[in-house]
Simulated assay, not measured.
Amino acid sequence: MKLYALSVLHLRHEHNRRALESLPPHPEDWLIVAGDVGERLEELDFAWRTLTARFRQVLWVPGNHELWTVSREPSALRGEARYQQLVALCRAHGVLTPEDPYPRWPGEGPARILAPLFLLYDYSFRPDDVSEEGAVQWAMDSNVLCTDEALLHPDPYPSRAAWCAARVEHTRARLEALPGDCATVLINHFPLRYEHVRLPRIPRFSLWCGTKKTEDWHTRFRAEVVVTGHLHMPATLWRDGVRFEEVSLGYPQQWTWRGDISRCLREILPGTPP
């Protein structure tokens, strides 16, 4: 029994949809989907119909793309309402979300709790000499501006940073209540540490990549592994003896050189030692 992870599926691209359908069955294994499945409900519905037929259990955390409001219809949901709509769709397919009780990993090995998180970002992934008020302009000065500024609405919160702060406090309380004899697998779309945002071509995009409020969560909450996506740069990194897995698939041109999509699945548990 294994735990796998994949993120940034971007199923609006037909090549990625066909690749997902080509995944072979893993009837005994679990799968983490760490956000950016798509922008529309039909893309998530397709993902869950496809993946729940292939894996014993699927877990999901939202990426920024799922939270976008792309419809111009007055009835289109925004912010927290949009997120809850996504949670309801996941539950209809038996997919676990950040709003569900954290499951214990049923595989072999020490006791572990899988913790899907939804934390967002607060523009704090920036140099110390850049103010919070001037952060977005600082990014724009290098011709960088995230589409979230137009499509990811924070309703009913006054800002995305305020929504992030509320999610961090809510999640911290849940993690602090976990039994102290269990390790964790922390799962979030956005990186938990600023140092892991390695974007050589667009370094100022870091603003939309996480919050410094989670810098110590890998040690504070006894993480064995931290699973994230968002960066389109799959990698295995280590900090304080904790394994950090960036598990993005990405746009077709970013991953097809690797061959079959099965080669992009990252084994989280049992995993490999340092």
Results as ranks from 00 to 15, higher is better:
residue 57 Q to C: 02
residue 54 R to S: 10
residue 177 A to Q: 13
residue 271 G to S: 12
residue 258 R to E: 15
residue 13 H to I: 07
residue 57 Q to W: 00
residue 199 L to A: 05
residue 197 V to S: 07
residue 6 L to T: 10
residue 227 V to D: 09
residue 207 L to S: 09
residue 269 L to R: 12
residue 14 E to V: 13
residue 193 R to C: 11
residue 170 H to R: 14
residue 127 P to M: 08
residue 205 F to T: 03
residue 156 P to Q: 13
residue 218 H to Q: 08
residue 202 I to L: 10
residue 252 P to T: 12
residue 140 M to W: 03
residue 119 L to S: 04
residue 103 P to K: 05
residue 18 R to S: 08
residue 269 L to E: 11
residue 13 H to F: 14
residue 106 P to N: 02
residue 41 L to M: 09
residue 125 F to N: 12
residue 23 L to S: 05
residue 81 A to L: 09
residue 46 F to D: 14
residue 55 F to N: 05
residue 207 L to C: 11
residue 268 I to Y: 04
residue 226 V to E: 11
residue 259 G to Q: 06
residue 42 E to T: 09
residue 165 A to V: 06
residue 268 I to F: 04
residue 266 R to T: 15
residue 74 P to S: 10
residue 156 P to F: 04
residue 8 V to C: 15
residue 161 A to N: 10
residue 228 T to E: 06
residue 241 G to K: 00
residue 190 F to D: 08
residue 92 A to E: 15
residue 242 V to H: 01
residue 156 P to M: 08
residue 16 N to F: 05
residue 29 D to S: 10
residue 213 K to L: 11
residue 257 W to G: 08
residue 57 Q to M: 06
residue 8 V to Y: 14
residue 201 R to C: 05
residue 71 S to C: 08
residue 272 T to M: 06
residue 15 H to Q: 15
residue 19 A to T: 11
residue 195 E to K: 09
residue 109 G to R: 10
residue 123 Y to V: 08
residue 59 L to T: 08
residue 239 R to S: 07
residue 127 P to H: 11
residue 171 T to A: 12
residue 107 G to Q: 06
residue 163 W to E: 13
residue 106 P to W: 00
residue 208 W to N: 01
residue 100 D to R: 12
residue 42 E to H: 11
residue 108 E to Y: 01
residue 252 P to R: 15
residue 208 W to F: 15
residue 185 V to Y: 01
residue 112 R to G: 00
residue 155 D to Q: 02
residue 259 G to N: 03
residue 84 Q to F: 14
residue 133 E to S: 06
residue 57 Q to S: 06
residue 41 L to N: 03
residue 216 D to E: 15
residue 210 G to K: 11
residue 262 S to R: 14
residue 188 N to W: 02
residue 74 P to W: 07
residue 102 Y to N: 11
residue 174 R to M: 11
residue 25 P to R: 08
residue 114 L to A: 03
residue 36 D to G: 03
residue 194 Y to S: 08
residue 221 F to A: 11
residue 194 Y to A: 12
residue 200 P to W: 10
residue 237 L to P: 00
residue 69 T to F: 01
residue 229 G to I: 05
residue 77 L to Y: 03
residue 221 F to V: 08
residue 163 W to T: 07
residue 218 H to F: 01
residue 232 H to Q: 12
residue 154 P to I: 06
residue 211 T to W: 00
residue 84 Q to Y: 13
residue 117 L to H: 11
residue 223 A to Y: 00
residue 128 D to Y: 02
residue 114 L to S: 04
residue 98 P to M: 10
residue 132 E to G: 07
residue 231 L to S: 02
residue 41 L to W: 01
residue 202 I to G: 03
residue 174 R to I: 12
residue 103 P to N: 07
residue 189 H to K: 07
residue 117 L to T: 13
residue 94 G to W: 03
residue 237 L to A: 06
residue 269 L to T: 07
residue 55 F to D: 04
residue 106 P to R: 04
residue 107 G to N: 10
residue 96 L to R: 14
